[in-house]
Amino acid sequence: MASGNKKKLKRGLDFWMFVGPVFLVFAVIVLVPFFNGVMYSFTDWNGITGELNWIGFDNYVRLFTSDEQFQQSFWLTTRYTIVAVVLTNLVGFILAFLLTQNIRTRNFLRTIFFMPNLIGGLILGFIWQFIYVKGFSSIGELTGWSLFELPWLGDARTGFWGIVIVSIWQGGGYIMVIYIAALQNVPQELVEAAKIDGANRLSTLRNITIPLIMPSVTICLFLTISWSFKLFDTNLSLTNGGPFKSTEMLALNIYKESFTNNNLGLGSAKAVIFFVIVAAITVTQVYLTKKREVEA
């Protein structure tokens, strides 16, 4: 009996020796700021002075009644997320499908397509800002093509698509790598059996390949949804929400409310609402896609 208790105690100590330091760091960096943010969302703190007053749900009421910019940023972020998630996964899957074929330069091309993911969002935004403003203008003058003469960062509609293009260019390669790993693990005997039964490529892809790579689809959708909703650095460096806040995503709106307008209480309320929405969407997405997963 005593020996069994000693073993349990030893296992518990071993567990906390490994998990304890990580949990402590996680609590200090994530949990404590999170609960502080929830608390501040019920105050009028400006983030600078030590004086803060408890105002209850006033910040939350303001968000849904009089804060039009928050509502505009929310719908813009939702529209951007839908477009970016679909196109990023589509581009990533097409690249993965092509680069799992018998192509000589496939390893080189995989590296090239993955490389944009290694560039930080701020630097990426400044690079593409130069491309949109200077590069496209020069190409438009040389070719006369109206596509390159559009005000890519000076108009709400083209600014939106400018951000989408940069996001796909950066994230498509990362998603491609996940899909490549999934496609390489599809049992080839099933594909060969489908060909023998007379199935064409499209039918094989739809009925065999895609159902077998659904775990990767779950991961890729989860990643792209969270990336899209939390887009900040690229938005900041590429358009800074302009022109006239027409491309101001939700994360940038929260940042400006908290640290530019010095209204940390209202900014924290926005962040709490943001967290609840993203958590609800991602949990729902994971639940729905997990149900469609099959085993080979």
Rank of each mutant, 00 (worst) to 15 (best):
L153P: 04
V25I: 15
A199D: 05
G4F: 10
S3I: 08
P21W: 02
K256T: 12
G172E: 08
V83R: 02
K245C: 02
P116A: 03
L202H: 05
M176S: 04
Q69S: 13
L109C: 05
I196Q: 01
I208S: 03
R157I: 14
E51M: 06
G4R: 12
N261I: 03
W152K: 13
D67C: 05
E189S: 13
D44A: 09
V22F: 12
L9V: 12
N263Y: 06
D58Q: 15
N261S: 14
T143Q: 03
K134Q: 15
G12W: 13
I112W: 09
K6W: 09
I131E: 04
W16Y: 14
L52W: 08
I131A: 10
G242H: 05
L142D: 00
A296K: 05
I196N: 04
I127F: 11
G92S: 08
E192L: 02
L190W: 02
G92K: 06
S167V: 08
G159M: 07
V86E: 05
F222Y: 13
L183R: 04
F229C: 00
L98N: 00
I103K: 11
N89E: 12
N59L: 05
V294H: 04
I254C: 10
T65M: 04
L124G: 15
L63A: 07
Q71G: 11
M17V: 11
G162Y: 05
G241D: 08
F93A: 04
T284C: 07
W145F: 14
Y174P: 08
L31D: 01
V38E: 11
G154F: 07
F229N: 01
C220F: 01
F70R: 09
E149L: 13
E149K: 14
V28H: 01
G162K: 10
I168K: 03
T78F: 15
L150A: 15
